[in-house]
C-alpha cells in the first residue's frame, strides 16, 4: 500500500472542499478520481503533494506523513498540476534539464523512464515550451514529472482540453509507466477514462461516493438500467419524474436512462402510463450500465436534481 489516506478534510472560508475522504492505493496501480469541476479533486491532490495542510485526518505516502515528513514525500512524488506549469520561455530540453538538476539527477540517467514519451517530442527539443501544442505540452509536463523516477505520480486532470487522439496516446503512456512499476493517481472529468484505471473513486462535493474497481462499482450499484426514447424527449423526462416508481431518470446522449425503485419493475404498466400521456414512438430497452450511469445514479441519490428541472 503506497498511499494511505484517512478522513482527510479541508475547507476554504466556509466551503467544505474535501470532506472526510479515506482511500488506499496499492503499489503499481492506476487510481482514478472521477468527478465534475469543483468536486475537490485538486484540493485533495494538493494535500497529497504536501502543498496544502489538511484540516483533519492524515495521509501517508510510502510510509511518510504528508505533513510531518513533507520533505521526504516531496522527493518520492512526481506532480503534474492541472494547468501547464512549465517555463514557456525555456525550450523543451532546457525545461527537462532544469527539473532533472533540481531533483538531483540528469536526463541521461533516467532516459529509459521517459524514452517512450520523450521520443515523441524530441524532434522539437529546441522549441520553446510556450509554442507547443496542448498534447505536446502534456507530454513534456509528464516527462518533467517523471525525470527523477518518482515512486508515485500525481496527475491532476492531465487530459483536460486535449484532443481525443492525444488523450488515447497519453493513456497508452500511462499504462506503459504502470508496467514499469510506477503508481499513478490521476483525476479526470472524462468518464470513459475510468475503464483504464485499476481503481476508481467517484467524487462529488468533496466526498467519495463510491470507490472500487470499475466493474465492481457497476456491479455493486446493482440497478437494472433501461433506455427510453420517444418523440418528445423533454416531455418524456418530465412525465417519468412524476411516475411514482421512478428512482432516477436523466438524459444520456439522445436517450433517457431510467432506473426503477422496484426490484422487478412492471414495464407494461410504465408503457401504458406513458401512452396515456400521449407519447408516441416509444422505445424501451434494458441495457448494461456504464460507469457514467452509476455516477449519475449515485449523484442523484446524494442530492436529487428532480426539483430543479
Amino acid at each position: 500500500m503506497i498511499v494511505n489516506c484517512q478522513n482527510i478534510s479541508k475547507s476554504y472560508g466556509g466551503i467544505q472542499a474535501v470532506e472526510s475522504v479515506s482511500f488506499d492505493v496499492e503499489e503499481g496501480n492506476i487510481f482514478g478520481f472521477l468527478g465534475p469541476d469543483g468536486s475537490g479533486k485538486t484540493t485533495l491532490f494538493r494535500i497529497l503533494t504536501t502543498l496544502l495542510l489538511p484540516d483533519n485526518g492524515s495521509a501517508r505516502i510510502d510510509g511518510f506523513d504528508v505533513v510531518k515528513d513533507f520533505r521526504k514525500v516531496r522527493n518520492i512524488i512526481g506532480y503534474m498540476p492541472g494547468r501547464f506549469s512549465l517555463y514557456s520561455d525555456l525550450s523543451i530540453e532546457e525545461n527537462l534539464d532544469f527539473f532533472a538538476t533540481v531533483f538531483g539527477t540528469t536526463l541521461k540517467e533516467n532516459y529509459h523512464l521517459i524514452r517512450d514519451i520523450y521520443v515523441q517530442i524530441e524532434p522539437f527539443k529546441k522549441r520553446l515550451a510556450g509554442r507547443l501544442s496542448g498534447g505536446m505540452k502534456q507530454k513534456l509536463a509528464l516527462s518533467c514529472a517523471l525525470i527523477h523516477q518518482p515512486k508515485l505520480l500525481v496527475l491532476d486532470e492531465p487530459t483536460t482540453g486535449v484532443d481525443a487522439v492525444s488523450r488515447k496516446e497519453f493513456w497508452d503512456l500511462l499504462i506503459g509507466l504502470k508496467e514499469k512499476g510506477i503508481t499513478i493517481i490521476i483525476s479526470t472529468p472524462y468518464m470513459d477514462e475510468a475503464g483504464m484505471c485499476d481503481q476508481v473513486a467517484l467524487m462529488q462535493k468533496g466526498k467519495i461516493l463510491s470507490c472500487d474497481k470499475p466493474d465492481e462499482i457497476i456491479r455493486k450499484d446493482g440497478q437494472q438500467l433501461y433506455s427510453l426514447k420517444a418523440e418528445n424527449i423533454y416531455q418524456l423526462l418530465k412525465d417519468l419524474r412524476k411516475y411514482p416508481e421512478t428512482d432516477t431518470v436523466f438524459p444520456f446522449g439522445q436517450d433517457l436512462h431510467y432506473t426503477s425503485k422496484e426490484k422487478d419493475p412492471d414495464l407494461e404498466k410504465l408503457k401504458s402510463y406513458l401512452k396515456e400521456r400521449g407519447h408516441e414512438k416509444l422505445v424501451l430497452a434494458a441495457i448494461t450500465p456504464g460507469i457514467e450511469d452509476v455516477f449519475m445514479h449515485l449523484m442523484e441519490k446524494e442530492n436529487p436534481l428532480n426539483e430543479k428541472l
Partner: peptide, 13 residues
Amino acid sequence: ELGTMEILLVSPL
C-alpha cells in the same frame, strides 16, 4: 501566477 511555483515547492529545492 503561472503555477510553476507549485512544482518548485514540490521539488527538493
